[in-house]
């Protein structure tokens, strides 16, 4: 799970989490008791449909402002360490 979430976790943290997560997961298992057959899911207080914007350009950020937050930038771009090779 930690790898999927791109989280390096120390062994101590992992030990603590494991026990805590068990308690929480146990509580979640109680949802299994609920009869949800034929029940539609809900995600919003007022279900909204067809919310669109028109295809009208809006100003982008000035490049300096966009790059200002970057931990490392070069040549107008965000610099990152080498990416693991996808090709053999």
């Amino acid at each position: 799970m930690a790898r999927l979430a791109r989280l390096e976790v120390t062994d101590d943290e992992l030990d603590a989490f494991a026990g805590q997560l068990d308690v929480i997961l146990e509580s979640m298992q109680t949802l299994g008791e609920v009869d949800t057959d034929g029940v539609e899911p809900t995600s919003h207080a007022v279900p909204l449909v067809n919310v669109f914007r028109e295809d009208q350009p809006q100003p982008s950020l000035p490049r300096d402002a966009a790059l200002a937050g970057g931990p490392d930038t070069a040549e107008g771009r965000f610099r990152v360490p080498r990416i693991l090779d996808d090709e053999e």
Partner: peptide
């Protein structure tokens, strides 16, 4: 999902927003 323009070949990172 935003109003940034899509022109091909613009200078890098000039067509981005929050």
């Amino acid at each position: 999902f935003c109003g940034c323009p899509t022109a091909f070949g613009a200078e890098p990172n000039t067509q981005i927003c929050p």
